[in-house]
């Protein structure tokens, strides 16, 4: 417990050192505050964007896009991954396409997505979905492949059907893999939202970053940027917690 407290305190100290050094550098002319901004300026910009409601509106847009894109990715990723895990022909057929989607810079297709789906919301959701569903599908498939065959034989030996095997053995035992994939997918979905907003939307945190940067308002750029960083860390921590909770039976 004490150990943990020291870790957190030192981590916080690291952040404080960084902020302090940055502020000092900006005040003493070591770094041009107009270009690199400074913690005090960022705080003022944060207060301004918060009071005007801009920050909250951006956050709301991005959060909704993220939730829908990521939610779709989980549903499609799990179904596709299980199908690929259960049927080897399906796996071999889909595999090349999955790897192409995983490995290629999909954002290059944004102009086509805009023509197909319209500028803004749907395009952003689609980019988030496309970036994140593959890692979930791959992990769900790996989960099915890793199922202990003796469990399946046991169910069959006691007269269970193929359906029983799927719902009572395969699904529950692939949960840890699916969760791990879902966690990788989280970061990719957030990345997708930001990419989509930067290139294919005029709303949300990603768009705000590009707009303030184009106006050379560096302090204002940091507000949505830091919001995204905090959001990323918070989502990641929450999912790690949830993962631990859902897998508690595994350690026992």
């Amino acid at each position: 417990m004490n150990e943990k407290f020291a870790q957190v305190a030192l981590g916080a100290l690291g952040f404080i050192l960084l902020i302090g050094a940055w502020e000092l550098a900006a005040r003493n002319g070591l770094a041009n505050p107009v270009v690199v901004s400074s913690p005090a300026r960022i705080a003022a910009a944060f207060a301004r964007q918060w009071a005007s409601g801009d920050l909250f509106a951006d956050l709301e847009t991005s959060a909704i896009e993220f939730a829908i894109g990521y939610g779709l990715a989980i549903v499609v990723g799990v179904v596709l991954g299980l199908a690929m895990g259960l049927n080897r022909i399906a796996e071999y057929c889909i595999d090349p396409f999955i790897w192409f989607i995983y490995a290629s810079p999909l954002i290059a297709f944004y102009p086509l997505l805009i023509v197909w789906l319209g500028f803004g919301f749907v395009t952003v959701v689609t980019v988030a979905f496309l970036l994140s569903f593959v890692s979930i599908a791959i992990n769900a498939m790996a989960g099915v492949h890793a199922v202990d065959a003796s469990h399946m034989r046991a169910v069959l030996a006691f007269g269970g059907t193929r359906r029983d095997v799927i719902f009572k053995v395969i699904l529950p035992s692939s949960v840890p893999h699916i969760l791990a994939g879902a966690r990788i997918g989280l970061g990719r979905a957030l990345h997708g939202v930001v990419l989509g907003e930067m290139f294919g939307s005029n709303d949300g945190l990603g768009y705000s970053i590009t707009r303030y940067a184009a106006q050379l308002k560096t302090a204002d750029v940091f507000v949505p940027l830091l919001t995204l960083i905090v959001l990323g860390v918070a989502i990641n921590q929450a999912s790690a917690l949830l993962e631990g909770r859902l897998q508690s039976w595994k350690r026992a």
Binding site: L10, G11, G14, V194, G206, I209, A213, P224, L225
Partner: peptide, 20 residues
């Protein structure tokens, strides 16, 4: 001291830093 900063950088969508 610095690993939390790194992890934060890792979790954040990198592309968001590009305009800056």
């Amino acid at each position: 001291l610095f690993e939390p900063l790194f992890v934060a950088m890792y979790t954040a969508p990198l592309i968001a830093f590009v305009p800056l």
